[in-house]
């Protein structure tokens, strides 16, 4: 369907571009109700139902869904929560597990047939998540280190020669309060945006050379493109998981940094 709209002009191949992400409202006139919004709602529903069915009546010997979900739980606990939160890890598992599963399902929407749109490739979604973590980070920092102590610990990490602080303090402030939350959101957004474009490009090339303009010279290019589409989908599956992991990991890192002052 996507390929058809991209290849509307029959004579010349047009590579898919940012217009892929300009999605009209589902119901005309209701501007906010778009496909990504529906997919985000669906993702939340998937995560809620998955966790509910896994953990609502937990058995001592896990089976079925609970078994699968416990693997996810253990992964988040051992790889995300514990390295950054130590003994506080268990208290934050609810938040971190939800973030990890939600972002992963958002990303997976990019390769689910017919849905095929990674929610996070609209930057508003990662911004809301990263912004929530950002507010939480500042709140926790001010609560655990004092309203002034938090910013003092942030701007004056121990172990530097005194005059250097004049140059370093603004750097720390900018890095922690502006650049870090910005990159937190952009990293997820840009990966999903680029991945979706790559998949769209290879499928469009394959469609063009095998269906629109079938020719002896073009057919091998089309075959290569189809193979590349499959290979890139595999890579994309890996990146989708990796980005969900990184997003949750950075959230744990920011929370951990607020609970305890730096070294």
């Amino acid at each position: 369907m996507k390929a058809l709209t991209v290849l509307a002009a029959p004579e010349e191949f047009k590579a898919p571009g940012p217009e892929l992400f300009d999605i009209p409202p589902v119901v005309s006139g209701v501007a906010w109700l778009t496909k990504p919004v529906l997919l985000a709602l669906l993702s939340s529903l998937v995560v809620v139902v998955f966790c509910w069915s896994a953990f609502s009546k937990p058995k001592l010997v896990p089976r079925g869904v609970q078994n699968v979900a416990e693997y996810g739980y253990m992964f988040v606990r051992d790889q995300v929560a514990r390295p950054f939160l130590g003994k506080d890890a268990d208290r934050w598992m609810g938040l971190l597990l939800s973030i990890f599963f939600l972002v992963w399902v958002w990303n997976l929407m990019g390769v689910v047939p017919f849905l095929q749109f990674p929610v996070a490739s609209h930057i508003a979604f990662p911004i809301v998540l990263a912004g929530t973590i950002y507010l939480l980070k500042i709140y926790l920092g001010m609560k655990h280190q004092g309203p002034i102590g938090y910013f003092k610990n942030m701007m004056f990490p121990p172990g530097l020669p005194k005059p250097v602080y004049i140059l370093m303090a603004p750097l720390e402030l900018l890095s922690n309060l502006v650049v870090a939350p910005f990159t937190h959101a952009v990293r997820l957004f840009a990966n999903m945006f680029a991945g979706h474009l790559i998949l769209a490009f290879f499928s469009a090339v394959g469609f063009w050379f095998l269906f629109e303009q079938l020719s002896p010279l073009g057919a091998p290019v089309g075959v290569i493109s189809v193979v590349m589409t499959i290979a890139m989908t595999g890579l994309e599956l890996f990146i989708q998981f990796l980005q969900a992991f990184l997003f949750a990991m950075l959230a744990a890192m920011y929370i951990g940094g607020s609970l305890h002052a730096e070294h």
Binding site: L171, S175, V179, A180, T183
Partner: peptide
Amino acid sequence: SYILSGII
């Protein structure tokens, strides 16, 4: 994020 901050 530090390097980006330094540049900015």
